[in-house]
Design a protein around this nucleic acid. Structure first.
Length: 585
DNA sequence: GCCGTTTTCGGCCCGACTGTTTTCAGTCG
């Protein structure tokens, strides 16, 4: 685990313990925020730690946290963390992760019921001992019992590539109902995050009861968690939670903004509203007329106050003196005080520079690959099969690659309407050497260099390895640079700042691999690359026709990294792209 | 604990739903 990830875990744990011991909730939030900030930080925090000012310059990290970070980097421990851990049983933090159990309840279970971990919670639920605790009715205990099954996967988030199709299916299913006039998914899914905690859907309808019934009655609903007039919540058979919120059409923009988040983005919007003498909630942006009548603390929409803006997100941003901020940028990572780029879109993509055929581990022949790419409107498709060291993927020997190059060139003369490029996804060996000799690489139109093995190298080795590939004069693109697999393999943890600086210097593009299991580079890395001025490529790494559909996940990730279209090779005209590829030949 | 275009002190976002309650606390997003 990287230092950033280790520290993020520690700060999150401190926040959990502070919650359980009843600390000031703002102090809890502050720790949580530090954890989130560290997780998203592209730079190695250990390298920033020699100067406290560089740490406190990061939003959310103050003097106190900076001291703790430095203490950890120097000694490997944080004294306050050790002290906090002595205050509560370690297993209690797992209990806190059970859905529906918050700090107050867990504390009561611990102090009054002797619960110290999941195992004692289970045992005491069985024996009925917990029924004497205040506010522990039959129904509450039943819910805890039910939710326990999900404790293990509570921290587990669904990959974007799994969540998006589920949400689209539900939207399509409910859209057919009579009276439904609008239906859209919101939340982290709309922001295009690489993993999704739950799916949020917003609806406008003339018949709320019918929509609620249809929603809670869907075939794959395992359990109805809540079902009210405007909000219902279900858990699907595969464990995903889906929330449906029914809103007034006149307030749809406000609701969409509110439920798209992120929480951090929303907090800034609300603070900004207050500074301008207004209040923002999910019903609209309202003039704040509550100051004189102090006894009326009802929300503005219940006092008959008309909103300044509510129908469309654009109107609300405008009323707050902001440009429209695309959902992917709503993370409070500078979107309020920087000029926003013209972000790349799916329709801008005109070339695929990383795809496989039956020559290695793909399912398409060269001709089938070309046909699929042409059908999708691309002007260029690069054939980049695996190299000889990728034995498990049937990587090509030198001789097989030479034959393959000829076959691709032949297909290129036969097939109209698209340019086929002969390329390779060449392995970056553990020491940074490439899997083919320079003479062979020089014959290729496109070289994508990717790490496939030795993915547990330490940071120093990984950085040196990838730097060597970036600096290689025959390499065009660094493919899935970290080799991570979301939710299953952390991959390499190189020094991203050094990689992007080298990529700029040597004009090597960095790949955003669009496979939803990879999304590598990840959003924060893309941002670091964009800020440094590097070129990016968005590639699907297609092994079958359906994989071309991965493109949208790559584009979402690119947009989250603030990538403008003109900095993405795949958007260039055929002439510009081919000239760029030939520059080192 | 963090932060500052009214602030280095005094704030820190807002509402729905559930369950156990006779008016609200806790959780969630």
């Amino acid at each position: 685990m990287s230092t950033n990830a280790e520290l993020a875990t520690i700060f999150a744990e401190m926040a959990g313990i502070l919650e359980l011991t009843g600390a000031n909730r703002f102090r809890v939030n502050a720790h949580d925020r530090v954890a989130r900030v560290l997780e998203a930080l592209p730079d190695d925090v250990a390298e920033l730690a020699d100067d406290p000012a560089r740490l406190t310059a990061i939003d959310g990290i103050g003097e106190g946290s900076a001291k703790k970070i430095i203490e950890y980097v120097e000694t490997g421990r944080i004294g306050e963390h050790d002290e906090l851990r002595r205050e509560v049983p370690a297993g209690l933090l797992d209990v806190l992760k059970v859905p529906g159990l918050g700090p107050k309840t867990v504390r009561a279970l611990w102090e009054k019921g002797g619960v110290v971990d999941i195992a004692t919670l289970r045992a005491k639920l069985e024996s009925g001992e917990l029924e004497s605790i205040p506010r522990m009715g039959k129904k509450t205990l039943e819910n805890i019992r039910d939710n326990l099954a999900y404790a293990d996967q509570a921290g587990r988030r669904l990959r974007l590539g799994a969540a998006l199709p589920i949400a689209e299916n539900i939207v399509e299913h409910l859209q057919r109902l009579e009276g439904v006039t609008r239906l859209e998914y919101a939340g982290s899914l709309r922001r295009g995050r690489e993993t999704i905690g739950d799916i949020d859907i917003l609806a406008c309808t003339d018949d709320p009861a019918a929509l609620t019934d249809a929603f809670t009655g869907m075939g794959h609903v395992d359990r109805v968690i809540a079902s009210g007039e405007t909000k219902s919540s279900v858990r699907l058979a595969d464990g995903v939670q889906v929330d449906l919120r029914i809103v007034d059409p006149d307030a749809f923009g406000a609701a969409l903004l509110y439920f798209t988040g992120s929480k951090e983005h929303n907090v800034v919007l609300r603070e900004r509203s207050i500074k301008r003498g207004m209040r923002l909630n999910e019903y609209g942006l309202f003039p704040d007329e509550g100051a004189d009548g102090r006894d009326d603390d009802r929300p503005p929409q219940k006092r008959g106050i008309s909103p300044v803006a509510s129908r469309r997100e654009e109107e609300i941003y405008r009323a707050l003196d902001l440009p429209y901020i695309p959902p992917e940028l709503r993370e409070d990572r500078g979107e309020f005080d920087h000029d926003l780029p013209e972000l790349v879109e799916v329709d801008d993509i005109r070339a695929e520079l990383h795809a496989h055929t039956t020559a290695s581990d793909g399912t398409m022949s060269i001709d089938e690959l070309a046909e699929e790419a042409r059908a999708r409107g691309l002007h260029t498709i690069a054939v980049t099969d695996h190299s000889r060291s990728s034995v498990q993927a049937n990587g090509l020997s030198d001789d097989r690659l030479r034959e393959h190059i000829d076959a691709v060139r032949d297909a290129n003369t036969r097939i109209e309407g698209i340019t086929l490029l002969a390329g390779s996804e060449v392995d970056i060996l553990a020491d940074g050497r490439l899997d083919y000799g320079d003479d062979l690489l020089a014959e290729l139109d496109v070289v994508v260099a990717s790490p496939h093995s030795s993915l547990r190298q330490d940071r120093k080795k990984a950085t040196a390895r990838l730097l060597r590939a970036i600096r290689h004069p025959l390499v065009h693109i660094l493919g899935h640079p970290t080799g991570r697999m979301i939710n299953s393999r952390p991959g390499l943890d190189p020094d991203i700042s050094r990689l992007v600086d080298a990529a700029v210097e040597h004009e090597t593009a960095l790949e955003i691999n669009a496979n939803p299991a990879r999304l590598d580079l990840r959003d924060t890395h893309v941002r670091a690359a964009v800020d440094a001025g590097a070129l990016l490529a968005i590639n699907t790494d297609a092994h079958s026709p359906a994989h071309f559909d991965f493109l949208r996940y790559g584009v979402l990730t690119a947009r989250r990294g603030w990538l403008p279209a003109d900095r993405c090779l795949n958007t260039w005209s055929s002439r510009t792209l081919h000239a760029w590829l030939k520059r080192s030949r």
